[in-house]
Amino acid sequence: MTKRISTEDAPHEKRENLWLLIVSPTIWAVHFLFSYITAAVWCAKVGSPGGSLQPVRWAIAIYTVIALIGITFNGLSGLRRHNFGTESLPHDFDTPGDRHRFLGFATVLLAGLSAVATLFAAAVVFYFFDCR
């Protein structure tokens, strides 16, 4: 196996951050929970069985915008790490530089997945107009 000599100044593994990887999926989960709980509480406490869901639909729309902004920032930070240095895909060498790029790339992919999933969850606002 060829071992590349890294001249790049990638962060040491102790300083590498795994948490950034799960930010987007977490936003997706929180978006889902907030949307669900808002609708459940609204329909149980405020709306009657046939009552309007309008405020909840707006709330979900706002949650969705916030979630997508968060996911975008997380994705962009991943993209920055993915583009670190001059190497391109695949980032599969056992070097601090490739680890840094790999984590960035994985963050980008997860952000994309989470964005789609968040939009899928938000799709209900186009189909439900009351608490039935």
Binding site: F120, A123, V124, F126, Y127, F128, F129
Partner: peptide, 9 residues
């Protein structure tokens, strides 16, 4: 998803 959700109302 659109087809399935569209059926619910």
């Amino acid at each position: 998803l659109a087809y399935g959700l569209g059926m619910m109302p």
